[in-house]
């Protein structure tokens, strides 16, 4: 059973997976409750453009995707203000822009096609030492930031108008939150893939909503569900040669199915 841990690449995958299992639902809970669950989906498409840009520029694709996703996250916020009566339009525009740029850049980066597939569908065998360092460092930064601003993020998520009137620095915290979402998407994409990254942010949260009796419980349950999904997904994908992203999300959906049975 434990021979899985004898492989260096699996140890790397578990470390990266553990961090992602925490940050994806942690950020995802706030996204879902702010009715912004599609934002993760849009940013993951943009992240692909970042991966292609990274390959072309000869830098680490994860770093490339972090840079591009950060830019896009602020693009969404800007577009939401411009089209405030059609706020979902900003998501559609960014998805289109991300995919268009990704397709053109990928055309130039044909040599890195295999690498791109790893980012598209997720991979556990190709998680590098650099990825582990990046995911651990930035992931811990995301966790620490949310811990520090937990009460402010909760109030803004629950009632932004009242939070503003109470004197909380809502614009600054929203700005910070956008950075956290962008980082989470770029990091989680390495394991679950661009196509499914938003699922790992949304489904554990959706599962926890059915059983949580407080916001704190919702956060804790979603992290537990995410942990189970990521670890079981990595193990099953190793032994049965499955796509890790797809396996993780199917387990996560199964958990959501079970919790949704609760009336």
């Amino acid at each position: 059973m434990f021979d899985i841990f004898s492989y260096e690449f699996m140890r790397r995958a578990f470390i990266a997976g553990a961090i992602i299992a925490v940050i994806a639902p942690l950020v995802g809970n706030f996204l879902v409750l702010r009715r912004l669950s599609q934002m993760g989906h849009a940013l993951s498409h943009v992240a692909l453009a970042g991966v292609a840009a990274g390959i072309l520029a000869g830098i680490d694709p994860t770093i490339g995707s972090i840079a591009i996703v950060l830019l896009a996250a602020f693009g969404i916020e800007g577009l939401r203000k411009t089209y405030f009566q059609y706020s979902e339009l900003s998501i559609a525009i960014i998805v289109s822009a991300g995919m268009a740029v990704a397709i053109i850049l990928l055309n130039f980066a044909r040599g890195g096609a295999v690498n791109v597939m790893n980012y598209l569908f997720g991979s556990i065998v190709s998680v590098t030492y650099t990825d582990v360092v990046l995911i651990s460092t930035l992931g811990l930064l995301v966790i620490l930031t949310i811990a520090l601003f937990y009460k402010e993020l909760l109030y803004i998520t629950f009632d932004e108008e009242a939070a503003t009137i109470s004197g909380l620095p809502v614009s600054a915290i929203n700005f910070l939150f956008t950075i956290l979402v962008a980082l989470t998407v770029a990091l989680a994409m390495r394991i679950v893939g661009a196509l499914l990254v938003s699922s790992l942010m949304v489904t554990p949260s959706a599962a926890s909503l059915k059983i949580a009796q407080s916001f704190k419980q919702a956060i804790i349950y979603s992290i537990i569900f995410s942990f189970i999904s990521v670890f079981a997904g990595i193990i099953l994908s190793f032994y049965f040669d499955l796509s890790p992203g797809g396996t993780i999300i199917l387990i996560s959906l199964a958990i959501m199915g079970i919790t949704s049975l609760k009336k």
């Binding site: 409750l33 009715r35 909760l154 629950f158 407080s214 916001f215 419980q217 919702a218």
Partner: peptide
């Protein structure tokens, strides 16, 4: 407000 918000 969102009545399904999981806050006590």
């Amino acid at each position: 407000f969102n009545s399904s918000f999981p806050a006590s």
